[in-house]
Computed example of a mutant assay.
Amino acid sequence: MKKIIIAFSLLLTLAVNAQNQRFIYEYRYSIDSTAKDKPETEIMFLDVVSKGSRFYSKDIFESDSLMTASMEKQLQAGNGEINFSGIKFKGKVVHSVEKTYPDYSVRFFNNLSADEYMVQDERKQDWKILPDKEKTGGFSAQKAVCSFAGRKWTAWFTTDLPIQDGPYKFSGLPGLIVKIEDASHTHSFELKGIKKLPAGYEWKSTKEKERFNALVTVTEAKYRKAFKEYLADPMKSEKQMLAQGVEIQEIDDSGKLVTQDKGKKEKELKMKNDLKKQNNILELDLLK
């Protein structure tokens, strides 16, 4: 992965106005506890505007944009069957997080099989700010700790950037979180760069995007129940759709659409085996 060039010359401007900026984080994670020595990385964007922020994967966003553009082009050409061959799909972190200002309420979006959930997460981090200070990524930062979602976290925040936000669901400190890591050192977010948002950028909530199935809006407690049901039967929602006569298609590694019944048993077995390995997910308390 190419290193992102850190552009902190915007510090003075950001100190005056941290809005309309894209904060670029590197997310390092090991969701399989038996492979802690082989962490994966993904670049994440935290887009900040006056009404709130949105945190999402750079690769997933780019792949979705390419797929949408290709689909629109093929539909305009009158193609009866959409083909995404030639598009290289990247990214593994499919969830995203939105916060609304000034209350910093959290909306979490994630797919469980064929269902997409929007979770209203009312939990807050109970931070303890410590006197420790260090230079992090060119910023003067101070240490804070909290317990959240089954993990103990250590964060470093800077008041040089006057926004009480941070990566993922983290917020509530008197400055931007520039680095945060859990006690097991298997999940961490670190600020790697800052950019102004592109000209004409329009912040749109994920809940407003077009989708085939209705968005499932739940509380954090109900999502926890749905997540456990998903672990027990990861293809439950797809089976229900098939029983209703809905034809489900998905994209294979080459970018071609394939019908759901092709290799269904093999897919279900693989999904269950893969989920068993995911015993160190970010929100560890979901597995309890």
Rank of each mutant, 00 (worst) to 15 (best):
F109K: 10
F109H: 13
N110S: 13
N111I: 05
L112T: 07
S113F: 09
A114T: 15
E116W: 07
Y117S: 12
Y117V: 11
M118E: 15
V119T: 13
V119D: 13
Q120S: 14
R123D: 15
R123T: 15
Q125T: 12
K128E: 13
I129A: 02
P131K: 07
K133D: 00
E134F: 00
E134H: 02
E134G: 00
K135G: 04
T136R: 10
G137S: 05
G137C: 03
G137R: 01
G137M: 01
G138V: 02
A141V: 03
A141F: 02
A141Y: 04
Q142E: 13
Q142D: 03
Q142W: 08
Q142M: 09
K143V: 00
A144L: 07
V145K: 09
C146W: 08
S147L: 06
S147A: 14
F148L: 07
A149P: 07
A149T: 13
G150P: 12
K152M: 08
K152I: 07
T154C: 02
T154Y: 02
A155H: 09
F157N: 00
D160C: 07
L161S: 04
P162S: 03
P162D: 04
I163Q: 06
Q164A: 14
D165T: 12
D165I: 05
D165R: 03
G166E: 09
G166R: 10
Y168E: 13
Y168W: 15
K169C: 11
F170N: 06
F170R: 07
S171W: 07
S171N: 14
G172R: 09
L173A: 05
P174T: 07
G175F: 01
G175H: 01
G175M: 01
G175K: 01
L176P: 10
L176H: 08
I180S: 00
E181V: 14
E181F: 00
D182M: 01
D182N: 13
A183W: 00
S184V: 07
H185V: 09
